[in-house]
Amino acid sequence: MPELAADSMLRDAATVVGKDLRLEWRSRVTLSQILPFALLVLILFAFALDPDRRILEEATPGLFWLAVLFSMLLAIQRAYAVETADGVIDALRLSDLDPAGIFLGKAAGIGLHLLVLEVALFAGVTVLYGATPRGYLLLVATMLLATAGLAAAGSLYGVLAAGLRVRDTLLPILMLPVVAPVLIAGTEAFSAAYAESSGDGWKWCGLLAAFSVLYLAIGIFAFEPLLEES
């Protein structure tokens, strides 16, 4: 086969992400269930933290990323529930799709869902918490880099838990400690973007970029043995 390995990997990734997006378009689980959940979390935070004392506005960066992490768990579970439900994961395994391509495709699908959730959550914190950012460029860069990292880690850990009876309880304990650096870096970068000067914000973006690259690389190499046995 004269075709380059990278080409076929990307083509397989496109196949998988296309399938996932068509599935979402037909079922609308993310839009009709996970998105409302994410916004509900924002409202619940307001009950926990007195909205009159401006705590919400001050804590906006952290609450935003916490809400992202919670809804991310649902999005990952959804992304692999569609695979395991009808034995599709067996079909994927038996198809001659490149495992690295499947990993990237699942990651891209999760990432796109996360971006939609983040845009909605951003609108949510702007309206509900009255937080207005100053550094939009930093804000967008943080979102994109953090999403790439969360999606890569989510795609990898999702397949670890997929197909197990205890997957719903196992996924959070496997994933949340791992993405703690994303929560830290995302929160700090957002704090900078909401503050007068974006000072240290870009440093944290660097950490997010390193995390994303690392997890994309791990996923590309580790997905094959995981897929074989999940």
């Binding site: 791992v178 650096p181 995390f211 690392l214 995981l226």
Partner: peptide, 23 residues
């Protein structure tokens, strides 16, 4: 097989988590 992959990823996480918390 699955836990072998996780066992390797976990040790990679240790310095990342350590560094970010430190920072």
């Amino acid at each position: 097989k699955q836990s072998a992959v996780l066992g390797i990823i976990a040790i990679v996480n240790v310095p990342i988590v350590h560094f970010s918390v430190d920072w």
